[in-house]
Nucleic acid binder design. Structure first.
Lengths: 153, 153
DNA sequence: CTTGACCTTGCATCCGAGTTCAAGGCCTAC
DNA sequence: GTAGGCCTTGAACTCGGATGCAAGGTCAAG
């Protein structure tokens, strides 16, 4: 398939596809006789992975670290290293989720205060909600998600 | 307190403090006779909030949207708008948490495969783990966190 | 055989979020 | 009173992650 079809399927501009190829996040595809890039299904799968990973907040460099998993090159040597990388990424993700949960709880508290009190009174809540004293407990995911659903309907 | 003390307490460089003032994330403080910035406790509290929010992945623009909560200016008029903003932020956060959870699950699957199989065999797992077919279920937070703990010990 | 949509390359530009620099003023200790 | 450390400003610079542009090649329809 040509570059625009690939780009459309994954939902990125063609300029981004070329950029990812340039920085090594997407392998160079074969070319047609006239020099056009010609992609297969594997490219779509990989590009989708890269695109998703970017949306999760991983940097291009971090994604490049993860890609050898599917590269196949230098496979045996890379095995232990790749496992360690995955563990690190998972720890990072867990940390991010935890902090996001805390932040959501803070916002939830502010909202509750605003909701319950007269406008004029609520405005001077003085940031104390932002600097929680004592231990912070992780918000149960379902609680956060429920808040989101309320917001949408 | 002077700028370097404020910056040290919150853990950002002074250049960042001036930058936040410039783009409106931190109010301009009073000045000493000689023109030095002179901050009070409120500034420290607000700067801490901004710094935390940045670390959660909110953009400066998003943070600027949230700040009126504590601004006090134009209070009554802003009340409903601020509640809506909080709901939106919570929805965004919930979405981020959900996607991060999905991504963590994918990594978890890849890791399990690598762990269980011979290196040479695992290397050709062909990305199918990245494009889950069917519905994706949110990873329970505790599961993700457990993975992180395993990684650390 | 032309029109219009698509493709190629390299290079320049943009954006957010800071960081660094230059040129100079303040302040405290010695 | 001068050295060294902190402060001021505005402007320029950095960096990651793209995006856009110019100048030209390809290709299918009419």
């Amino acid at each position: 398939m040509r570059i625009s079809e690939l780009a459309d399927r994954v939902g990125v501009p063609t300029s981004t596809v070329r950029y990812y190829e340039r920085i090594g996040l997407l392998g160079a595809p074969i070319r047609t006789g006239s020099g056009y890039r010609d992609y297969g299904e594997d490219s779509a799968t990989q590009l989708l992975f890269v695109h998703r990973a970017r949306r999760m907040g991983l940097s291009c460099e971090q994604i490049a670290d993860l890609l050898p998993i599917w590269g196949g090159a230098n496979c045996t040597a890379a095995h232990a290293r790749v496992i360690r990388l995955i563990d690190e990424k998972q720890a990072e993700i867990a940390q991010r989720i935890k902090e996001l949960g805390e932040f959501a709880r803070q916002l939830h508290d502010v909202r509750a205060t605003l909701d319950a009190s007269a406008p004029t009174e609520a405005c001077r809540t003085d940031l104390s909600c932002c600097v929680p004293s004592g231990d912070i407990h992780v918000v149960p995911l379902e609680l956060v998600t429920r808040g989101a659903n309320q917001a949408r309907h």
